[in-house]
Design a protein around this nucleic acid. Structure first.
Lengths: 341, 341
DNA sequence: TTGAAAGCGCTAACAT
DNA sequence: ATGTTAGCGCTTTCAA
């Protein structure tokens, strides 16, 4: 592919003039400019990224680091929603996105590699799991432009964007109560796993229950499992019959859980919403499950991704900008799965 | 961040020795190597990508170009599945993935930009729509390493990977027939749109019907709409009552369509699977819709993405390799939505 | 208005 | 075994 030099030769000027034309700098006679442009067109010249990057230190590329992986089906609708927003912001600001396939199982995985190689100007961490401590330390110390999405690493120099999961958990529980339910179960995550979002939702649930009943939540009403459908199903099979009185509503910490809970109801001989109400969280399945339509909570994923990228790019351009902490609200979406009693 | 030069200074050697150590070349005394490594560690040196790329012409990055965008919810489970596979291959072969946010609405969008800038070594086109003709021409002419996924641009130098949609459409129709159905509708796409996959599935349907009945398919049984749920719904509302006799099964060209069809049944006073069977295509909702569980067809998306990336990387490494054309089989997944009669 | 020289970080080729 | 020179494509001085 053609280089500046070749264009220069064809146009009968020096390569620096080509550079000037390409970058729309002044100080080029109109006729020269035209000649250069013609040569560019003729040779199909395109400025090479590497030369530019080497020189300027800028890549016009941001990295997305995440322990979450692309999956098939629903698995990673969260990551996809965030990426959608990042993409929009990057489109507006002429940036590309670099995905570096790394997995935590890798003994020597290093989320920051793309930055260390100067392949990207900054990074967005989409953290369904917590960001590793050493990573936080290094990012803070070396002032690496970075924005965390979906977690709140209270750490200097780390900007983050999150939704108010605790509040959403609280308000959802309140809403279920107001619909007339007095025994409300929560379906969360096994303690072997950790997920900040889910933990926050549970905290909100507990807080609401405390306020509403004057007592701490009955632990028999807090159901738990791993991430699998079968795990959820067996947890419900076990936990439901043990509850006394039986819950009339289950607040599920994710839509996937809500679906799995829904699927196990027939064998327990109960129906939704006649016998039990179900509320989910995420909004991923709103368009898919429609009988009953699912009451859930929706996070503004695209908006979050977009803000993350915008903040990151601001940081990159002006390193002294103060870090940002943004909490997005979660929107409740009503559905038939939540019935009045 | 430290450079080779600084490391060299600290270790008391010349920068070329640092390069040798970093690249594990021979001809370095063990003691020198150790000294250099210590200096590298101390300074946290990491080879810069730009310098290397400028020199070698290789970026160790492949681009993914696609008119499909990341979406929220189900919208782009297809793209996500493919990306998953690309990611796996790239992980194995130490490559990164570049996403360049471009949209066709953009007057001056140019899918090849990242390649022209030498930001990537090759590209994968994930084509739910057909690849624009000029693009195909340029790629072929300039021998740009490129693999097309989900379409078959019969063109020199263009490798592609696709699933056998026509055969899947044919076999699915056969299967529905074998289940005892004699009036089988097909739900496809409005002619205003084009989607090679869906068109192929329809072709398979028509072929099977011709073989089975000795006649061309009854056009009243070929339903069509745009991509929206409400579009699908109203198409069914209109088309179903006009059929005489009424179909006992609908072969939907995508799962999204199947869901939408399912959702409109109540108002038509028919139930699935008792009154009408439904078969989908894609397998995206297998884990979500379970009453009835959906009979569908699954494409091996991750495997496809993986092969695409592998082929692309082979092409990049050995430009003279012949182009590849790979057809993956589609797997039928049985479900309660397809009932015997 | 144009150009020459130097340097960004790295490696290949050629010394020593 | 180690170092020197040159050059990848570009931009930033500085000079004409």
């Amino acid at each position: 592919m053609a280089t500046q030099k070749e264009v220069a030769k064809l146009a009968g000027v020096s390569f620096i003039t080509v550079s000037r034309v390409v970058n729309n700098e002044g100080n080029v006679k109109e006729e020269t400019r035209r000649r250069v442009q013609e040569a560019i067109r003729q040779l199909g010249y395109f400025p090479s990224h590497a030369g530019k990057a080497l020189n300027s230190g800028r890549n016009n590329t941001i990295g997305v680091m995440t322990p979450a992986r692309f999956g098939e089906g629903m698995e990673n609708a969260y990551l996809m929603g965030i990426l959608r927003g990042i993409e929009l912001a990057c489109h507006d600001r002429d940036q590309d996105i670099l995905l570096s396939p790394m997995s935590e199982e890798d003994p020597e995985f290093d989320f920051l590699r793309p930055y260390r190689q100067k392949k990207v100007d900054g990074m967005i961490y989409v953290g369904l799991k917590k960001m590793p401590g050493e990573l936080r330390g290094e990012i803070a110390e070396r002032l690496i432009p970075c924005v965390v999405v979906g977690d709140r690493p209270e750490y200097d120099h780390l900007s983050w964007i999150d939704t108010d999961n605790e509040r959403a958990g609280y308000e959802t529980t309140m809403r279920i109560w107001e619909a007339g339910h007095r025994v409300i179960a929560f379906h969360g995550l096994d303690p072997d796993f950790f997920n900040a979002n889910i933990a926050d939702r549970e905290r909100g649930y507990r807080k609401a229950i405390r306020e509403l009943t004057g007592k701490d939540a009955d632990e028999r009403l807090v159901w738990r499992s791993d991430y699998t459908r079968s795990g959820v199903q067996s947890s419900v099979r076990e936990a439901y019959p043990r509850c006394d009185p039986r819950p009339t509503a289950v607040f599920c910490s994710t839509d996937n859980r809500a679906i799995a809970v829904l699927s196990v109801l027939p064998e327990l001989g109960i129906r939704c919403p006649q016998d039990i109400s179900i509320v989910g969280f995420d909004g991923f399945i709103r368009d898919i499950v429609f009988e009953p339509s699912m009451a859930t909570n929706e996070q503004p994923l695209a908006e979050m991704g977009r803000r993350a990228a915008d903040i990151l790019l601001d940081h990159i351009e002006k390193p002294d900008l103060p870090r940002r902490e943004i909490v997005f609200p979660v929107a409740f979406v009503d559905g038939e799965s939540l019935a009045k009693r």
